[in-house]
Every structure is written in structure tokens, then in C-alpha cells.
Design a protein around this nucleic acid. Structure first.
Length: 874
RNA sequence: GGAGACAUAGCUCAGCCGGUUAGAGCGUUCGCCUCACACGCGAGAGGUCGUGGGUUCGAUCCCCGCUGUCUCCACCA
């Protein structure tokens, strides 16, 4: 037993050692076991070459709390770890490295480039994992998966092929979002809209065969070379006569049809819309409806192509300038207005996204979404907090087909081969060597890879070995809960539900526990560009993982953002220190070998045990309901305000008096029992310090993390002891209060005379009053002492306490003070009386509420009576 | 345009789906080196719970309107 512990807890000295101890003993390992119930969580896979940021720390702490709790509750728990290849993000990083050498990926070629990326992955792939060690994450690391592992790649391929066979994946030439910087298509979810200052240009078009003009307004003149029509509202009187005629497209001098479409708003701009089917989603639809020509004028690199006439080769922004200038010269530019509008940007690089038609692969969402909505409506999948159900259903109800092909090299290559002879596309589970239709060997694989989120969508089952039928899948699937931020509901959560239901015919998780974003102390998002990110590893090194974890868990509620303050980390570091010292105190006084509770318990033992029982019940319940912050708060206040501030102090009487062996041992057992139990309840939140202390205390088993979760024990419920103890505590408080008001130092002790109807109780409390209320002696009396007029008094509802310190007090001021207290209590009593005299209240409120009010009134009256008496004496 | 969240002490937030003399951390005031802890102990000050209605015996909590802040979705060229 360690008795010489340092006064200040130093987390850095033990955390790594403890983590290694857990690893060495295989305590994180998950095995399907028939005699246990399964509990599983898959980690939201971080980018393989990324670093741990506060968002991960938050997300993973929440998961670790749940996993550790369930493990202690006897479940066979699997926390499945892994990393994501993060297509665009990783490729961008490696390309940036290449650029330093003056190279592009095209210089290297596909194969060489991929070698580079793999090397990059080897170099940085383990960094984030070891950072998770620091946090205390209890994942089964033997099972670490990567989205581009062989097995997971097989899952991706199987899914692609089977969806293709069902007609749920198709290739089509449709309008998509294109990032000219990343040079790839993006899905709708990958586009972030931002308000940008722009201009609205008004341009004159001549009507064919006439001297008349019509005017259009546009924010994007650079696309006009691709215009193939002009639309007006069918009800617009101004333009009705032009419908069916043609206008001459300026600069290109090409006649384009004028037609009517409901889409056009009459009161915006001029009421005439230039239609560019290849570069605007709405125009694309109109183009289809009215059978317009489709002319692509912007290339993948954001430059105008050969269809753009003289502007060919110009960057889109340069082209815009030129077009405006030319129109102005021709006298066709009539007006320029400032106009602020939402522009789509790439979520990875921030570049303005270019809508354009392109031949891409899509997942047909409509038939899938039906099931996805039904599962949530049935309650098979529950969102916490519930309001996110609506976010999800709104999105699912309006979901568009998902563009899944990316013009990147890093990722899962699309398993489709094009026949150069017959044009047939062969999509296959095994690499084909000939066209499945015409047998030609002249086939070539699609150059593109799949959206990163395609493989992420399979994560809950691909990590467990699917498409093989594995023990893990059988036992741990579906997972119990998915823990993630509300910001990736669409990217990930919705798609996992989609593919889980489609491929497994079973939901991927039963519950989705959503949290918010960790912001800086000013409420700003932490970001690289602002430089306001806080590195969790630095926080851990300085304050310990437990303090960081506690900071992330407390002070917020599910689904809400939270701000990060060093002051809070410090407060929680102090809490660790408090636990450390309380434990140190217990150990310093230890002579018994175990913490079996004795038959005969003291009042204060009954009090703390009752409160402890309540704590066990509530903390367990709170965790069950994902109210982790509430649970943590309760542990904090129990340990600090109840166990340390009162119980330890009360125990000192028995522990330090020397002659009371039985009492001392009883106190030790209760102290130890409650401490051990509280450490267990705290362990999911603060795994390191609890293990550290638990190891130093008498214990059974290898580790606190596999010890049995506490259960409430009805044998230790003592409500009347709690009430009695409260009376004593209240007496201590009022005496302290009086002394403090008079500025009496603790060293100046005073003889107390207590007038009470519970003489035994207060006589028994003598040691407590001596220790905690600076009493030199305690006399219990049944009536006011003779010399009360020369004493200072204070009162609770149960006790009238006198102490001879009157020389320290101004009599008149004392009278005023008492009068004030009486007034306050009388006001309170009056409010209760008002309630109780209300017929409706007495008859309609629950009996328990009414009797509680009656009791309150009685106590208040008892207090007032004593205060009045004090006043009389003076 | 649609949806949602938030508005509680100087600051940041809790308040566990109606009954509390409304809580915490930090900050602040006063007194303490009290034999676990000054990363501490004791005692205080500080809140018309945004606003106007409604439901109820009773509303910080439920419903409706308003004001303010924020977020997401859609996206009018």
C-alpha cells in the first residue's frame, strides 16, 4: 500500500504508464462472447494523415465514456477504431508536397503518385492513433481498420457492383458541382455556400429580324457563350409577344430561342433569364424541358474552352472581365448593380465551385431514401437530441442523386471497364480481361475513384469483415450508438443508414448521439486560418487527459456547441488534485485490509451512504440517457461538496482521536467503500487518475476498468439519518456564519449552549461542532441559559445556539440583524401559507407536494420563534 | 424562401420533458498557512430566468405572438 504520495497530483508521471498497463493486459480487447450482451461503437474514422484536434478529443471522449461504462456493466464491448483515406484532403496534401519539388501528379503518373501517397500514409498514419492513446481511448487496437485496406476495399467493390446490378448506380451526363482547383466533381453535400459580393449586369439582346431589344440581367456573363435560350414567365405581358421568336446572342452572334417557363420570376431583374444549360442547375432543367442545345464553355481547370470563341483559354474570371468590357464597347451593357448572392465553394479548398454538365457516376437516391425515412419514422434509429430527426428527414425527403465519382487518383478506383469496340460498360467484382458483351479485349478501366464518403458509408459493417460472414458481424452488428457531430449528418450518418439498410438489411446503429462543435473562448470555430485551434495534446501534457476529458464532458448538453476555456481545464485539474488528496488522506489513515461495511454504522456513515446510493442510481441513469454532463456534474459535487467538505471532516473525529479503534475502523471502511465506488463511477470520465488511485487501494482484480459497475444497495438507505445529519450540518453552518460575520478567527473557540428538542442528537454532535464550528465545549439544554442576554445567538429550525462572544458585537446592530432575518423568514412563511390556504392547491396538488410545503412552513415557524426569542433576550 | 436552436449571476454555461428560498465553474468581497489538499478551507455579495399573452392550483420549464443572436437546408438568373 502506497502511503507516501506526493501532495500534488502529477498526471504526466503516470498516464502513459497506465495506458500501457491497459494495453499490456489486453483490457480493450473485444471478443464475441455468448454469455455476455454485445455493445459496440465504431469510431468516426479520422483522416489517416491528420492530427488530433479538439473536435476529435470531444467526440472520442464521449465514446470512451460510453464504452467504459458498458464494459464495467458487463457487456462485451467493442470500440472499433480506424482511419479514413480522406480522398481529396490527403491528395491535396501530397500534391502540395510535390509542388515544393516543382512537380505535379501528372509528372509522376498515376502509379508513382500513388506510391507517394502510400508513403505519406505510412509516415503519418500512426500519428493520430498514438494521440488517441494519450486521450485514454479504449479502442480494440488489434482491430484497427483503414478504408483502403484490402477487406474494406472489397466491401466497397461489392457494394458498387451490387448497386449497379440493381440499377441503383448509373452513369449519366448531368449537371454536377465541379471544383476547378481540385479538378474533380463534388457531391451536393461537399459544396458550402457563402455570401459573396457580386454584380448584376444588364445586357441588351437584339431580337432577330427586328430592331427591338430585350434586356437580361446576369451575375455570370462569362457563361453567356454557352447560352442557348432566353426564358420569360408565361404570364409576363411584357414579353408575351416575343415567345417563339429568337434573340441574337451578343458576342457570339448566334440566334437563340425565346421561350416561356414558370421557373422565371417576373419581378427579378428584367424578367428575362439567359439560359446556360451546361452551367446552371436550373438552366439544365429548362434545357431538358425545352429541348435546348447544350454547350459546355468552361473546362475542368476553370478556363474557357474552344466553344467560347475568342475567350478560349481565358480563366473564367478573366473571361468575365473581357466579356463585360466587350459588351460595354458594343453599347450592349446597360446597367451594373451591386448584388450580393450565395456562391457555392469547395468544402476542401474553398474555391468557387463551377456547375457544369459532366459524365459521372451517381447513386439513385429516391428508392433508397424511402427505406431510410421509414426506418427512422419507425423508431429503429433514434436521434439524440431528438430535434435532429427533423434535420435528417427534411434532407432525406429532398435528397438528389449522389454523385460518387471523383477525378482523383487517391481512392477506390471505380470497377467499370469501357469497351473500345462496342462501347459497353463492364462492371464486375473481379477485374475483367474482356468486354462482357462483345468479348473484345480492348477494354479500359474508368480512371476515376469513388467519393471518400462512399467507403465511409460502409464503415459499421466493412470494419467487421463484410462481405464475409464473420463472428463480429453476427455478434456486434448493428452497433449500439453512433457518436458524432451534427455537422456530418448528411455526409456520413445519412449515408451509413442508407447503405446499412440496403446491404445488410439492418440499421447500422440503434441510436445517433450528436454533439456540437468545440469553439474557442470567443465562440469562433477553431480553424487553421484563424490560428485559434488548441492542440489537445498540449492540454493533456500540461493538465492531464482527465482534466481535458472532464472539461469537454461538462458544461454542455447534447447537440449544443461548447466553448473551450483554459480556466475550466484548470478547475478540472484542481478537481483531480482534490480527488488525489482525498484518497491520500484515506490511505494515510488506513489500517484495515478491506472495505466491507460493518453492521454498526454512525449517523454520518448512514448519511454519506444514503447520498452515495442516490449518486449511483442517478449517475447510471444519466449515462444511460446520454446526459453525460449532468452525470459528471453530480460526481463533481458529490466528491467535493459531500465527501471531502463534510464526510472526511466528520470522520476525523473517529480517525484521529486515537482511543476509538472500532470507530476508526468503521470510518475507514465507509471512507474506503464510498471512495472505491465513486472512483468506479468516475472512471469512464477520468480513467487515468481513477486507475492510479484504485491500484493503490486494497482491491481485487487487475484493473478498475474491468471492475464491476456499482449498483444501488437498498440496505444502505437511511432517510431519517440524512434528516438528522442535515440538522447538525445546519447548526454548524449557522455558527460558522455568525462567527464569520463577527470576524472571529477559527483559533478563538467558544463554548456553545444549544437549546433543542433533540438533545441526544446534538449531544452526540459535540465532536463535530468542536471540529467544524470552533466550539470549545457543547452544552445541551432544554431552556434558554441564564446569562443569555450577554450572549450571541443563532438559530436553525431545530436548534437555538448561544455563544459568549457578545463583547464582539454591537447590540443595536445585532438587533437589526435579527429583525432582518425574522422579516425574511416571515415573508417566506407567508408565501407558503398563501399556497396552503388555497383550496385548489391543497386539493389538486399531489399529496407529497402539499405535505412538503407544510413541513417547510413548520420549520420556518420554528426558526422564527427562536429568532423572536433571541430578540426578546437582548 | 423553409427548418431549427439559443436568450438564466460580471463572463461561460447547467437546470435531468411544471412544485427548488433558481445552481456550477471562473471572476469578485471578507476571514483563515484548521494535523489530505493554498490546484486549499470557511463565509458572503451578485439573477424582474429576453418580452407580451395563454394553459394550470402552480410556469425558468408547456403553448402562441414579438424582439434579438446563431445554425442548417434551398437557392431568384
Amino acid at each position: 500500500m502506497i502511503k507516501e504520495l506526493p501532495k500534488v497530483y502529477e498526471p504526466s508521471e503516470s498516464e502513459d504508464r497506465i495506458y500501457k498497463f491497459w494495453l499490456d493486459n489486453g483490457l480493450f480487447n473485444a471478443e464475441p462472447s455468448p454469455d455476455k450482451k454485445p455493445y459496440s461503437i465504431v469510431i468516426p474514422p479520422p483522416n489517416v494523415t491528420g492530427q488530433l484536434h479538439m473536435g476529435h478529443a470531444f467526440d472520442d471522449t464521449l465514446q470512451d465514456v460510453l464504452i467504459r461504462t458498458k464494459r464495467m456493466q458487463g457487456y462485451s464491448t467493442l470500440w472499433m477504431p480506424g482511419t479514413d483515406h480522406a480522398g481529396i484532403a490527403t491528395q491535396i496534401k501530397v500534391e502540395a508536397e510535390l509542388r515544393k519539388e516543382g512537380l505535379t501528379r501528372y509528372d509522376l503518373g498515376r502509379e508513382e503518385f500513388l506510391k507517394r501517397v502510400w508513403a505519406w500514409k505510412e509516415k503519418f498514419g500512426s500519428r493520430i492513433i498514438t494521440q488517441l492513446y494519450k486521450l485514454g481511448a479504449s479502442c480494440d487496437w488489434r482491430r484497427l481498420r483503414f478504408t483502403m485496406d484490402e477487406g474494406l476495399s472489397k466491401a466497397v467493390r461489392e457494394t458498387f457492383v451490387s448497386l449497379y446490378e440493381k440499377g441503383l448506380i448509373y452513369k449519366g451526363n448531368r449537371i454536377i458541382n465541379w471544383c476547378p482547383h481540385c479538378e474533380t466533381a463534388l457531391s451536393d453535400a461537399e459544396v458550402e455556400y457563402s455570401e459573396q459580393a457580386g454584380k448584376l449586369w444588364y445586357i441588351k439582346y437584339q431580337i432577330e429580324g427586328s430592331d427591338d431589344f430585350l434586356e437580361i440581367a446576369t451575375t455570370r456573363p462569362e457563361t453567356m457563350m454557352g447560352d442557348t435560350g432566353i426564358a420569360v414567365n408565361p404570364n409576363d405581358e411584357r414579353y408575351r409577344h416575343l415567345i417563339g421568336k429568337k434573340a441574337i446572342l451578343p458576342l457570339m452572334n448566334r440566334p437563340i430561342p425565346i421561350f416561356a417557363d414558370d421557373y422565371v420570376e417576373m419581378d427579378f431583374g428584367t424578367g428575362c433569364v439567359k439560359v446556360t444549360p451546361c452551367h446552371d442547375p436550373n438552366d439544365f432543367d429548362m434545357g431538358k424541358r425545352h429541348d435546348l442545345e447544350f454547350i459546355l464553355v468552361i473546362d475542368g481547370n476553370g478556363k474557357i474552352n474552344k466553344n467560347g470563341g475568342k475567350y478560349c483559354g481565358l480563366d473564367r474570371l478573366e473571361a468575365r472581365k473581357q466579356v463585360i468590357e466587350d459588351l460595354d464597347k458594343l453599347g450592349l451593357l446597360t446597367k451594373t448593380e451591386d448584388y450580393s448572392h450565395n456562391v457555392g465553394t469547395c468544402y476542401r479548398c474553398g474555391t468557387n465551385v463551377e456547375p457544369m454538365t459532366s459524365s459521372q457516376w451517381f447513386v439513385k437516391m429516391e428508392p433508397l431514401a424511402k427505406e431510410d425515412l421509414a426506418a427512422v419514422r419507425r423508431g429503429d434509429i433514434k436521434f439524440i437530441p431528438e430535434r435532429f430527426t427533423k434535420t435528417y428527414t427534411n434532407w432525406m425527403e429532398n435528397v438528389h442523386d449522389w454523385c460518387i465519382s471523383r477525378q482523383l487518383w487517391w481512392g477506390h478506383r471505380i470497377p467499370a471497364w469501357y469497351c473500345k469496340d462496342c462501347g459497353h460498360i463492364t462492371v464486375s467484382r473481379e477485374d475483367p480481361d474482356k468486354c462482357e458483351k462483345c468479348g473484345s479485349a480492348n477494354i479500359k478501366q474508368d480512371e476515376d475513384v469513388l467519393d471518400t464518403w462512399f467507403s465511409s458509408a460502409l464503415w459499421p459493417f466493412s470494419t467487421m469483415g463484410w462481405p464475409e460472414k464473420t463472428r463480429e458481424l453476427e455478434y456486434y452488428y448493428p452497433t449500439n450508438v453512433l457518436v458524432t457531430g451534427y455537422d456530418i449528418i448528411f455526409f456520413w450518418v445519412a449515408r451509413m443508414i442508407c447503405f446499412g439498410l440496403e446491404q445488410m438489411k439492418e440499421r447500422p446503429f440503434k441510436e445517433v448521439f450528436l454533439h456540437g462543435i468545440v469553439r474557442d473562448s470567443q465562440g469562433r470555430k477553431m480553424s487553421k486560418s484563424l490560428g485559434n485551434g488548441i492542440d489537445p495534446i498540449e492540454v493533456i501534457e500540461k493538465y492531464g487527459a482527465d482534466a481535458l476529458r472532464f472539461t469537454l464532458i461538462t458544461g454542455n448538453s447534447p447537440g449544443n456547441d461548447t466553448r473551450f476555456y483554459y480556466e475550466r481545464v484548470e478547475a478540472n485539474r484542481n478537481f483531480c488534485n482534490k480527488i488525489w488528496n482525498a484518497s491520500r488522506f484515506v490511505m494515510m489513515n488506513l489500517t484495515v485490509e478491506d472495505f466491507t461495511l460493518p453492521e454498526k454504522l454512525s449517523l454520518e456513515d448512514k448519511w454519506i451512504l444514503t447520498l452515495y446510493n442516490r449518486l449511483v442510481r442517478e449517475v447510471t441513469e444519466n449515462i444511460e440517457k446520454y446526459e453525460l454532463g449532468v452525470a459528471a456534474d453530480k460526481l463533481y459535487s458529490f466528491i467535493w461538496d459531500k465527501y471531502c467538505d463534510w464526510y472526511i471532516e466528520l470522520c476525523k473525529t473517529r480517525l484521529l482521536d486515537g482511543n476509538d479503534k472500532e470507530g476508526s475502523e468503521c470510518a475507514q471502511r465507509v471512507l474506503g467503500h464510498v471512495l472505491c465506488g465513486t472512483l468506479k463511477l468516475l472512471h469512464p470520465f477520468m480513467p487515468f487518475i481513477t486507475e492510479n488511485i484504485w491500484q493503490a487501494l486494497p482491491h481485487k482484480g487487475v484493473s478498475i476498468m474491468v471492475s464491476e459497475w456499482e449498483k444501488p444497495d437498498e440496505r444502505y438507505e437511511f432517510p431519517s439519518a440524512v434528516a438528522e445529519m442535515e440538522q447538525i450540518m445546519e447548526a454548524v453552518r449557522v455558527v460558522r456564519n455568525r462567527r464569520s460575520e463577527m470576524n472571529v478567527p477559527p483559533s478563538k473557540r467558544a463554548a456553545l449552549t444549544i437549546v433543542t428538542k433533540s438533545p441526544e442528537l446534538f449531544a452526540g454532535a459535540e465532536p463535530f461542532l468542536k471540529r467544524l464550528a470552533s466550539a470549545s465545549s457543547v452544552t445541551v439544554a432544554d431552556k434558554t441559559p441564564e446569562n443569555a442576554d450577554s450572549m450571541v445567538s443563532c438559530a436553525t429550525d431545530a436548534a437555538h445556539i448561544f455563544m459568549p462572544l457578545s463583547e464582539l458585537v454591537d447590540l443595536e446592530k445585532e438587533k437589526e440583524r435579527i429583525k432582518g432575518e425574522i422579516a425574511k423568514s416571515e415573508k417566506f412563511a407567508a408565501s407558503i401559507e398563501a399556497k396552503l390556504s388555497n383550496e385548489n392547491f391543497v386539493s389538486r396538488a399531489p399529496e407529497a407536494v402539499v405535505s412538503a410545503e407544510r413541513e417547510k412552513l413548520e420549520k420556518t415557524k420554528a426558526l422564527i420563534e427562536k429568532l423572536r426569542h433571541s430578540l426578546e433576550i437582548l
